[in-house]
Structure formats: structure tokens, C-alpha cells
Amino acid sequence: MHLEATNRTPEVSISESSLEMKGECYPEDISAFSEPILESLEEKLEPCDSFSVSLELRYFNSSSAKFFFDFFEVLEQAAEDGKSISIEWRYRSSDNSMKEAGEDFEEDMEKADYKLVEI
């Protein structure tokens, strides 16, 4: 699955063993954006032993925060089921908001390997 970035949505690539997301996220219709991604993620996670995720966001709005919360919950659940899940939350060194957001999501991750990466 590959989605090109738009003004309001990030670039998203999902392969058999990884997911990458990069850009800004404040979609016109959050469900229309998030549902296919969550569906595809769950489908890829099912057969795999290990899965890696890289997120590099510059901005997301409060409606998208709920999507990211659900997204991380799916990953944490997979890790609890015994899969090896690694997540990189990449933020620019000047970007305090995105650093804080990354830390907020980190708090709920126990089994998944979650790293904050300054770029």
C-alpha cells in the first residue's frame, strides 16, 4: 500500500514487514484516511514475526491524535502476542511539540520497542 502525501495527509508506505509515514496529518475526513491504514496494518501484522514502523510527522491535529492512539494500540497488542515490534518516532531537534507527542505515545508502549529519534 502506498499513499502519496497531500497538503493534509502524510506519505504512507506499508510493506510485508514495515510501515513508514512522513509528513503532516490533518485529513478532511479522518475515518476515510485512517481505516484503510489500520486495516492494512492488521493484515500485515497477522502473519509476520517482526514488523518495523517509522513515523516522521511535522504536525498532526487533535482528530488525528485518536488515530495514532489506536494505531499504537494495535502495535502494542501485536507485541504482547509475542511479535517483535520496533517503532521509531522521528522528530526534528527544533520541534518540541512533536517531541512531546512522541513521549506521550511512548508511555503506553511496554512490549513494543519504541524509540524517539532526534533528526
Binding site: N61, S62, S63, A65, K66, F69, E100, D104, E107
Partner: peptide, 25 residues
């Protein structure tokens, strides 16, 4: 920050058309 996270976990309040996080944000 705590209120934001709590709202995320609990989901939107009644009558909200989004995540209920806008004003906290």
C-alpha cells in the same frame, strides 16, 4: 498534558464531533 492523554484513552465526550481534544490542544 495529562488531560490530553486521559481524553485520548477515554474517547470523545458526548456531543463531540471529533476527538474532544480541540480545546485542550
Amino acid at each position: 498534558r495529562k488531560a490530553y492523554k486521559q481524553r485520548l484513552r477515554e474517547g470523545p465526550p458526548e456531543g463531540s464531533k471529533g476527538a474532544g481534544l480541540g480545546f485542550i490542544d
